[in-house]
Amino acid sequence: MVVTRKKLVPDVQANEVSYGKGNAKKYIVVHETDNTRTGADADAHARLQYNGNSRNASWHYTVDDKEAVQSFEHAWRCWAAGSTTGNNQGIQVEVCVNSDGNYQKAMLNAAELVAKIMKDEGIPISNVVQHNHFSGKNCPSQMRAGKVSRSQFITMIKNASGNTTQQKPSTDTNRYRVLTGTYATKQAAENVLDVLKHRFGWVAYIEPDEAKWRVKTGTFTGMDAVQAGANKIKTAKLAQVTKIVVNNIKDQDS
């Protein structure tokens, strides 16, 4: 049973990267992110959309081996399928292929999510299609290469419970930031900043620290979220030392 949570793109921003609301919800369109870099998980792609995707693209869900994150309600006509019909009538599901994730588990989670969407929206399994169905693009590429074949994925969906677990809101509503240890040069800090902003989809900044430099993230709500962020920085080997600090200003970056 996959854990799902929402990090919905604000409506004003959503209107800039979609055809607006009015999705006919006839299809579920399965994609892969094609982003194999470490840390390019569901949270990273959801944050990328939430913080302002630089590409003219949007999708409803991103799924990895741990969770599914929803960025748009089903009513939105996202830009993902490569055709008018696919965008106006499809619910778009992106599966992560990050090298530090488990692709098989991500596909199982995606199958659980798809089964839930089918149940909620009355979509038949015959209308669960690949991105390729609408545009001819080689997507989802690893599925199409047979790593988990379409027929195997359809079997996963049929065997899925169709239930998901909604992540419970954290009782800790405090906002926190992660500070990295210091870097000897500004360029080294900028290299880390680039990863946090463009691979992880985070808000982040560089700060001077005497003759050195450190990187400060945007805010996370709750200790669990910020601890996961600090662990992600260490796992990606961007910093050996991290520090969690309470954010005393009620700002909105995340």
Rank of each mutant, 00 (worst) to 15 (best):
V9K: 03
N15E: 14
E16R: 13
V17Q: 11
V17W: 06
Y19K: 09
A24R: 12
K25S: 13
K26T: 10
K26D: 12
I28W: 06
H31E: 02
H31R: 03
R37L: 15
D43N: 11
L48K: 12
G52T: 03
H60P: 10
V63E: 01
E67F: 01
V69M: 05
F72V: 07
E73V: 14
E73K: 13
H74E: 12
W76H: 09
W76P: 09
W79I: 15
A81T: 00
G82E: 00
S83C: 03
T84C: 02
T84H: 10
T85D: 11
G86Y: 02
N87R: 03
N87F: 02
G90Y: 01
N98V: 04
S99D: 12
D100P: 06
Y103F: 13
Y103G: 07
Q104W: 07
A106I: 04
A106H: 02
L113G: 08
A115L: 05
A115K: 15
I117E: 10
I117H: 02
I117V: 15
I123N: 12
H133S: 09
F134E: 05
S135A: 14
K137E: 15
R144W: 01
G146Y: 03
Q152I: 07
I154S: 10
T155H: 14
T155A: 13
T155D: 15
I157T: 11
A160S: 15
S161C: 03
S161M: 04
G162E: 11
G162A: 11
T173C: 04
R175H: 12
Y176W: 09
Y176T: 11
Y176L: 08
R177Q: 11
Y183D: 07
Y183V: 05
T185S: 15
N191K: 12
V195G: 05
L196Q: 08
H198N: 15
H198W: 07
R199M: 10
G201C: 07
A204S: 15
I206P: 06
E207W: 03
K212W: 03
T219S: 13
F220P: 00
T221I: 12
A230Q: 04
N231L: 08
I233H: 03
K234P: 01
K237M: 10
K243V: 12
I244G: 08
V245K: 09
D251C: 12
